[in-house]
C-alpha cells in the first residue's frame, strides 16, 4: 500500500492536475517507485480525466519510462554517439544475452534490470556502463563479461544464502 501513497503524494503536489501535467507526474512517480505500475497509471488517468490507454500511450512513447520494477542491480548502457562509436551496441547485446532480458526488462528473480540511456555526459569515458550508480568507463566486451559474471555469481550466492 506504500506504493499507492507515492502516487497520491505526487498527485497532491498539483492543485489542479491537468493533462499537460501528465509527463511530469509520470516522471515523479517513476522517481519514487522506480517504474510505472499499471495501478499507478490508472490512478493518474483517473485524476487527469484521461483514459488509461492514453496514459500508457504517452508513457510508452518515451524511452525514459519503465514498466517493470527495477532489479536489485540496475544496469544502464549508454547509447549516445560517442559510446556508440566506441562499440556500446556490442556491450548491450552482450549484457542482454548474459541476463536473458531486453532493455527495459527485469529478470524474473528481480536480481537485474537493464536500461538504455541516451547520453550520460561523460563522453570522454566512452563506452559507459553503470551498475547501481557505479560507473564503469571504457569497458570492452571482455571486461563487461567479467563484470556481469561477477554480479551473477554474487546474486546466485545471495539466493543460496536465503
Amino acid at each position: 500500500m506504500i506504493a499507492n501513497d507515492d502516487v497520491g503524494a505526487v498527485l497532491d503536489g498539483y492543485a489542479q492536475p491537468r493533462r499537460e501535467h501528465l509527463i511530469p507526474i509520470l516522471q515523479e512517480v517513476q522517481d519514487r517507485q522506480g517504474y510505472l505500475s499499471q495501478e499507478a497509471m490508472i490512478r493518474i488517468g483517473e485524476r487527469l480525466h484521461l483514459p488509461a490507454s492514453k496514459v500508457y500511450g504517452v508513457a510508452t512513447f518515451y524511452n525514459q519510462f519503465r514498466f517493470q520494477p527495477k532489479g536489485r542491480v540496475h544496469c544502464t548502457v549508454c547509447r549516445g554517439t560517442a559510446c556508440h562509436v566506441k562499440g556500446s551496441l556490442a556491450l548491450l547485446e552482450t549484457i542482454k544475452r548474459m541476463l536473458k532480458i531486453d532493455a527495459g526488462q527485469t529478470t524474473r528473480d528481480g536480481a537485474f534490470s537493464l536500461e538504455v540511456v541516451a547520453c550520460m555526459g561523460a563522453c570522454g569515458l566512452a563506452p559507459l556502463v553503470t551498475l547501481n550508480e557505479e560507473f564503469h568507463a571504457a569497458v570492452s566486451v571482455d571486461s563487461i563479461q567479467r563484470i556481469i559474471r561477477k554480479q551473477l555469481k554474487a546474486s546466485e550466492a545471495d539466493a543460496r544464502a536465503k
Binding site: 499499471q38 490508472i42 484521461l50 483514459p51 488509461a52 490507454s53 492514453k54 500508457y56 510508452t60 512513447f61
Partner: peptide
C-alpha cells in the same frame, strides 16, 4: 478512449491500455 497509439516510430501500434 479504449485504444490509443502505443510506442513510437516503427514500433508504434494502436492498442489498449497496457
Amino acid at each position: 478512449g479504449a485504444i490509443d497509439f502505443l510506442g513510437r516510430g516503427s514500433q508504434a501500434i494502436v492498442g489498449t491500455a497496457f
